[in-house]
Amino acid sequence: MQEYNIGTILAFAINAILIENIVLTQFMGCCPFFGVSKNSDTALGMGMAVTFIMGLSSIVTYGIYQLVLVPLKLEYLETIAFILVIASLVQLVEMALKKLVPALYNALGIYLPLITTNCAVLGICLTNIQNGYDFLSSFLSSIFTAIGFTLAIWIFSIVRTRMEETCDIPKAFQGFPIALITAALLSFGFMGFNGLTL
């Protein structure tokens, strides 16, 4: 992305949220997607926590990569550096929220530690670098990707609650298999966005 205007940013957003949805087309962040989607409130909470951490970690990892790793020719340490950044950020945010905004901490608290092992966060930081994005593009791509994650997990949780309340699921498919098949149908739905020409 070279010029930032409403059009390009919108195109970028639609692409990251709908067309290349991180969970449904790239399989990143599947663990929380299946793990915390049993009801829609927790799903939204998880989505918000991920959005927060993703935005923050894209800024910090961009800085570390460009200002520390590149000048020192240590690009090969990016995986270690990024995962440490993400893990410490998660810890810091947890401590800060607990002290400063207890209400938000109570809402998001239990999801925060889980984010360290959410591969979508590390994945998006690595692909931002790989795609050679500048600072603003990295940040926007992380935020939009996280919104895509939130959208997917929220829709999924709603479908799942409905289905488990009302459907008579064959015994072998109960639990995880039917969740996977629901995700497959959702993924088919999102494939339709492929037809959008931006």
Partner: peptide, 22 residues
Amino acid sequence: ALPAGGFLALGFVIAAAQHLIN
């Protein structure tokens, strides 16, 4: 081969595993 097919295939394989366990 599509992303959706990945979810589908894994769903059926795990269902088969659960069926065997049951």
